[in-house]
Design a protein around this nucleic acid. Sequence first.
DNA 1: CCAGTTAATGTGACCGTTCACATTGCCGTG
DNA 2: CACGGCAATGTGAACGGTCACATTAACTGG
Lengths: 339, 339
Amino acid sequence: MTQPPASGRAPSIRDVARIAGVSHQTVSRVLNAHPSIRPETRERVLAVMGELNYRPNRAARALVTSRSATLGVLSASSAQYGPASSIRAIERAARAEGYFVNTVNVDGNDVDEIQAALTHLLDLGIEGLVVIAPQVRVFDALVSRGLELPFVTMQSTGRRGDHALSVDQITGARRATRHLLELGHTRIRHLAGPLDWIEAEARIVGFHAELEAAGLPPSEPLVGDWTPESGYLAGQRIAAEGDVTAVFSSNDQMALGLLHALRDAGLDVPGDVSVVGFDDIPEAAHFWPPLTTVRQDFDEFGRRCIALLLAAIRGTPVEERALVPDLIVRASTAAPRAL
Amino acid sequence: MTQPPASGRAPSIRDVARIAGVSHQTVSRVLNAHPSIRPETRERVLAVMGELNYRPNRAARALVTSRSATLGVLSASSAQYGPASSIRAIERAARAEGYFVNTVNVDGNDVDEIQAALTHLLDLGIEGLVVIAPQVRVFDALVSRGLELPFVTMQSTGRRGDHALSVDQITGARRATRHLLELGHTRIRHLAGPLDWIEAEARIVGFHAELEAAGLPPSEPLVGDWTPESGYLAGQRIAAEGDVTAVFSSNDQMALGLLHALRDAGLDVPGDVSVVGFDDIPEAAHFWPPLTTVRQDFDEFGRRCIALLLAAIRGTPVEERALVPDLIVRASTAAPRAL
DNA sequence: CCAGTTAATGTGACCGTTCACATTGCCGTG
DNA sequence: CACGGCAATGTGAACGGTCACATTAACTGG
């Protein structure tokens, strides 16, 4: 006898089956696009589903398959433009593939918090992990944990099964530095991000590599913390020392602070000092002066992350080529005054 | 006979029970901190759990309780500082309460995408929803859907069970406007965000209310789209028209574009035109000139969101007072030149 | 000293899927 | 025409928790 689906709970596969006059397993097959279902049967089942407004219960499915269709994102400082944009792109790409994304934000300096966050994500049963804005510490936490999970990050760990997505930070940094060299600068400083950040390190490496290629002596980087304030402090030092005609900042926010400090010190940019940033945040074109910077395509980065991670999960191979950021030249750089 | 837990799958409550020599239900009780468990028994069970590295299976629990311990966040333009910060704070607060957060990013103008995103979240079985940066359209989509879910947003819908968290945007806007009035400005324009944004509307209302209170005639707002570019365009218009001594911008990014355009037009800020922003993004203090703006406490906002939402879910009452943003005075505002 | 309570624990069903393994027809083939 | 094979579907048992309802033993009061 066809009974109405027990109300109170949402309709289940069995309610659909009963009304469509098939077995629950047939309904399940329709859900999973099993090949050997007669089109006619499929239609009928789908019709009933529509009528009942049936939605598959994720928990039940996850219970039996032990697959959660959820990816985890572990992020430090996600209020910043770069990470935030990446997270956004990652979520979209994952959703398009039917995955859910769970982002956890941590203070990258707090090892306990990182561990707790990781535990949180594992409790959730994530199938894969993306690590955004990794600091060395975050990284160590992952490795020390002996994580079995497929994960994607911005630098290779050398472990089997790890999939590193490389944005070629080194080349990006070289392009910024080369631009300054080509303009004729020889006394160039680098304002780096915190040294325990993988990206900061890569940009330092790129900076030095380019200097070396030009036959210039290495120059000790100043260290900031990504904030405009730290850029301001660095700018004060640079102005005080007064022996530099160009600065390459590891991100745009610090470059902004730099511009501020140089201006306050009575120095003209680019007349006295040229400044290059990194990221091309939306504000950069409107700084005073508009900032020459290295553009990162965060959207593309996010999409690649997901492509790579899903490939790792599914065991399909992907050929992965590094993303290379572009130099965007604006008014904050010019030839040094005294050639 | 005590058999080793079947390997392959993670240990279950029954594995723990067998080894600890109790029933599976006792283990369940330990998990749920049931009062009538002898401390001695609890210890034993906990010890076994630790030994086996047992973790409760969320899917199984969700299946039987129909509670997912997951909250949804629906966000538009989450790469911006405000939304990104809020999301971060929300996630932290939720995690501290044992909830998972699933954020979905949409283009707020695409109604279909909003619906799809909502479906995505509902499929997940979220217990509550936070809507960030709501546009009227997003809002309508929620309401038209007749959502049964507890949700939190920035403006009341008037529906039963809806919980609005008010950041008092109107007062914030009034403070900004009053500051300009107190400096002696009388010809003030407002650069608004897109008119379909609830926040943009509130700031317009605040702006007009304050003008009216001062006995000044209303001033038609210019409309931007939150980006620095739109601020630049608005700045060009303002410079061309030349009849204004102060501008209140609905966010800091547009204010940045404004500063840029005014400078390009040869106008001095604050000498010729004063500018006030809104949000106090970390860059604002380093703009040229440093920007007077209205500070929003996004962290506090995120925490309140979660407190309110959990209260709605649990049915506990909360007394909710509006968050009022503060005016931060910097160098971009001054008395008008010709008093 | 026994009925009634309560603290501490056990038993079996159930949540909504998928999985492994039947069970039907129907077709072609030797 | 019996039979293997395949296409289409059905059956019952997991999955790992919680829930409702026993059960047991110790404790109370009259």
